[in-house]
Structure formats: C-alpha cells, structure tokens
C-alpha cells in the first residue's frame, strides 16, 4: 500500500541533496518570480527542524535579520522552486528540534561548530 504512494512521489523528489541536520547552517537558493523575471534569493540560517518524509519533507531555517529580529522560513525540501541547498557550517547540537533558540538572543543563541561529521 505504501509502495504505491512512494511510486507517486517518484520523480517529484530532488536528485541532489547535501546532507544536513538541525544545528547546521545552510544557504537556500530560492527562485523568486517577479512579474516576468526570475531571480535567485539566498536565505542563510541555522536549521531548526526537519519534518516529514518523502516529498512532503520540509526544513525550518532560522536567521537573525537586520535589527536583531529572528526570521524563520519553512522550505519544502523537494520544491522545484528551490535551486539548491548549500551547507555552510556543521553545528554540534544535542537535539533534533532547536526551538529553544527562539527564546534566546545574542551569545546564547549560538550553536557550537563541529569540524566534520562522522559516517556521512
């Protein structure tokens, strides 16, 4: 039964996806349509959560914008409107969902950096 659903999702998913998990800093290259023109907008921030599976999978990215305002965007990972994901930094975190970052500001809202990741 589930196989048939997976079959529908076939061809909808992204072919190339770098490995990243919560705590990592990524750059999302998103295609923005303005009238007739298309351009790429880059959103860089910390991965706060990855949710869902298959085509439905999403990633929540958080960044501190100008004026110290926290901004979170949820991207469907397999959306054709996203050109690519780039991993900028690997973070060392101890949980899968980093919602605690929302209550923090400044120094305590940082994530420790890891040099590399085992077994990837």
């Amino acid at each position: 039964m589930d196989n048939l659903l997976r079959k529908v999702e076939e061809g909808e998913t992204r072919e190339e996806l770098p490995h990243f998990r919560s705590g990592d800093t990524i750059r999302v290259h998103q295609l923005i349509r303005e009238g007739e023109k298309e351009r790429v907008q880059i959103f860089e921030g910390i991965v706060v959560a990855r949710k869902g599976s298959g085509v439905s999978e999403t990633v929540t990215v958080r960044k501190i914008s100008v004026g110290g305002i926290g901004v979170e965007k949820i991207f469907p990972i397999h959306s054709p409107r996203i050109e690519k994901f780039e991993v900028v930094n690997i973070g060392r975190v101890r949980r899968a969902k980093l919602y605690y970052l929302r209550d923090r500001a400044g120094k305590s809202a940082r994530v420790q950096t890891k040099r590399d990741r085992k077994g990837v």
């Binding site: 039964m1 659903l5 999702e9």
Partner: peptide
C-alpha cells in the same frame, strides 16, 4: 483509495 501524499504542480 490508497492514501494521500503531495506533488508539485507546474508552478512549483
């Protein structure tokens, strides 16, 4: 009926 999932349309 086998279940629900999602796909992307022409607009993405």
């Amino acid at each position: 009926k086998m279940g629900m999932t999602q796909v992307f349309d022409a607009n993405g």
